[in-house]
Write a protein that binds this DNA or RNA. Structure first.
Lengths: 161, 161
DNA sequence: ACGAAAACATTAGCCGACTTACTAATATTC
DNA sequence: GAATATTAGTAAGTCGGCTAATGTTTTCGT
């Protein structure tokens, strides 16, 4: 299998609790397949998260999007600039608070969430192929715990609207 | 907790098998903490994997490193060029096969694997905090399965030396 | 009221990762 | 032995992510 021939220093870390090298590897593979599936939508991996968020909650400020993604502000700014240039979103300065930039899907962008949802389902099915329902729930439970463990405390309250 | 207030389109995908948005989120958090821990070593996240590999198996070609990382050739080339410029590795053309470039740690680079190993342990402990040993093993089992599911078949045999 | 602090967004520059060419060297095949 | 295919590495350009520094606008404390 994919891990049995790793060098010693890495194999040594495969005692209980070795998410160490596993997490980056899974992230790359997950991203690679996601990229492949998104072919034809005009999106790159990462952008689809914003599209889904805006599909449900239009008019969010960049800061809100930033906090929800768990990312730094410049990442959001660049990504949204590209999505705007591609015609998927539009950004307008808020009248209430002129520091904020409110983001929404354009007509062109509004066609995306449904397709992205389908692709997510497909990606999830591929990732969890061969796992029983209880295994999937267990995996989800464990991953949530890991995410909490890795998330700085001061970011935990920023996910709601 | 960190996931209870996600928008509907994402919450909807949280039925059994929702690694979907969880994997990228964990990857970001994992990378962020890794970056923080690597402060002072002179390495960026991603580079430490190469350092560990070369610590155990010096003289590997870039193609071997590339396959082992599960990455595309240009990624390895750029990264190694930077590691070389930083003085951690050295690259020499192979005499046997002059297409190949063999990579090894320099004296400066040889100091890194031990420290990186310690930091990996710390990162793993943080990530799996609160999980029982059996939970950790279960998580590892499930993640390996997901990695296999996401890895194209033609890459599965490239991990040995 | 006013000055300091905080929040929002952007710019510039770096790195990891990708795709799409492209060159150079080795293997194959005829 | 020469034409062809495969393998190794590089170059250029794109995007997601980061840090550090800058400019605006609100908000807060005195």
């Amino acid at each position: 299998m994919a891990s049995s021939d790793w060098p010693e220093s890495i194999a040594a870390n495969r005692a209980p609790g070795t998410a160490g090298a596993l997490i980056p590897a899974i992230a790359r593979a997950h991203r690679a397949l996601g990229q492949k599936l998104l072919q034809g939508t005009g999106l790159r991996t990462g952008q689809e998260l914003v599209i889904m968020l805006l599909g449900d909650s239009p008019g969010k400020s960049q800061a809100e999007i930033t906090r929800w993604l768990g990312v730094e502000p410049p990442t959001t700014a660049k990504m949204l600039a590209r999505l705007e240039r591609a015609g998927f979103v539009e950004r307008v300065r808020s009248g209430d608070d002129r520091r904020k930039v409110l983001v929404s899907l354009t007509d062109k962008g509004r066609a995306l969430p449904q397709r992205v949802g389908e692709l997510w389902d497909e990606l999830n099915r591929t990732a969890t192929a061969g796992l029983s329902d209880s295994d999937q729930l267990e995996l989800e439970r464990l991953l949530l715990r890991v995410l909490e463990n890795l998330t700085p405390d001061d970011a935990l309250d920023d996910l709601g609207s």
